[in-house]
Design a protein around this nucleic acid. Sequence first.
DNA 1: CGTTCAAATTTGGTATACCGAAATTTGTTG
DNA 2: CAACAAATTTCGGTATACCAAATTTGAACG
Lengths: 228, 228
Amino acid sequence: MADQTLPAQIADQLRRDILRGILRPGMSIKERDNADKLGVSRTPLREAVRILATEGLVELRPARSPIVSIPSVKQVADDVEVLLAIEKMSAELACARATEAEIDALAAIVDVMADRFDTVDAVEMFEIDMSFHAGLASAAHNPSLADIHSTFLSRLWRSRFLSAIQRRNRERVVDHHSQIVAALRARDTDAIRTALGAHLDRLAPDIINVITQEIEQASATADRKDDL
Amino acid sequence: MADQTLPAQIADQLRRDILRGILRPGMSIKERDNADKLGVSRTPLREAVRILATEGLVELRPARSPIVSIPSVKQVADDVEVLLAIEKMSAELACARATEAEIDALAAIVDVMADRFDTVDAVEMFEIDMSFHAGLASAAHNPSLADIHSTFLSRLWRSRFLSAIQRRNRERVVDHHSQIVAALRARDTDAIRTALGAHLDRLAPDIINVITQEIEQASATADRKDDL
DNA sequence: CGTTCAAATTTGGTATACCGAAATTTGTTG
DNA sequence: CAACAAATTTCGGTATACCAAATTTGAACG
């Protein structure tokens, strides 16, 4: 975390704060205040905010403070719809193009999942899950595709996270992923479509439920003003 | 073209220059020179360059001048692969979600195509074609999807343009689009998949051919140094 | 004549100063 | 006391100044 550019580092910091909930949806990100707080000047902070804007995590408004995105249910549903399509496409391509080494790496991730399922906390398990799906995307050998995959993954990171920590389902976490790896090994496009479909189609309503819940909750506490 | 932000206007200007070939692939975009040339300061120009970088039209290099992207054949092929998938997905969703008014608008575009096919020049016809596909994408009623669609469309703009102007095929331009609209009207998902598939699967190799050609040609004239 | 190393220049990155618009606050009036 | 208007403050947008890294150039030495 050292050799990246300064704006990228700032973006990482802000992204973490947003995803961890320290910067809550709707909060404004004032250039001067945040620049001072992070000990940098407005220019790189500004650029960092633009990076997050393209990722969909913050929202730019003309002649106004950027705010942390407060995605509507519709937006989250749209994002999920796109992410699922990208992931299915990646999986099918990976079926044809993944190297044996890449499949081995994915299998190893599933092994780790199975081993640690009962011991690690939700956050760690979630990170492992993320690495599996990122690995699947890169196994499609199409960097453009992997790029937009990671964009939508980070846009939905918080939603997925909230969804994941409230439900720990061994079947989904371990079995589904095993089936995906098995289908990859067999180079069986239909099988991977089925396996991933089962995995993801269950994920979608979960995420949307969590978000719906969070938004209702937020509007209930709507008296809170956005601070600093 | 007035109320946009200054960086967006600059990005538009640069994008035009890149796509029209005035700024050729490999040319460096020096901040000071271009800022002076456009009569603005470095800050908004800098931001404009970042915009184009996220669109894939320019390439940022750490501690070096940004250069106009010179996409490899592989990159173009990857982009085409993604664009096709996005467009097929959009079409299928549009089949279920497009309003009658949206379908009418698309039909009107096809009428314009048919009417003017023999009179307008390639550039204009190309613009009409672009508006059709953009309309199709927005008829899917998923802004996230429409966003990445337009990103890949602009990333491939120049390639598609070069491909389009060298081949004018009434069958493809008019008939294919008519079939797509007909399938939309009938809400026939299979039909639209077939129609769009026929349209696009022919497009892909054309684009890749043109790019392969251009790259070979460029390496043949490799003595030219990037000026300014 | 070629190679190497250092000085100068170029250039992107960052900080800061300035400007105009928008919002907030304050004061006055009905 | 409420409401509207003016002044002040706040804040993003833009320009500019400064800095450090990198490239280039040229001179000196082999």
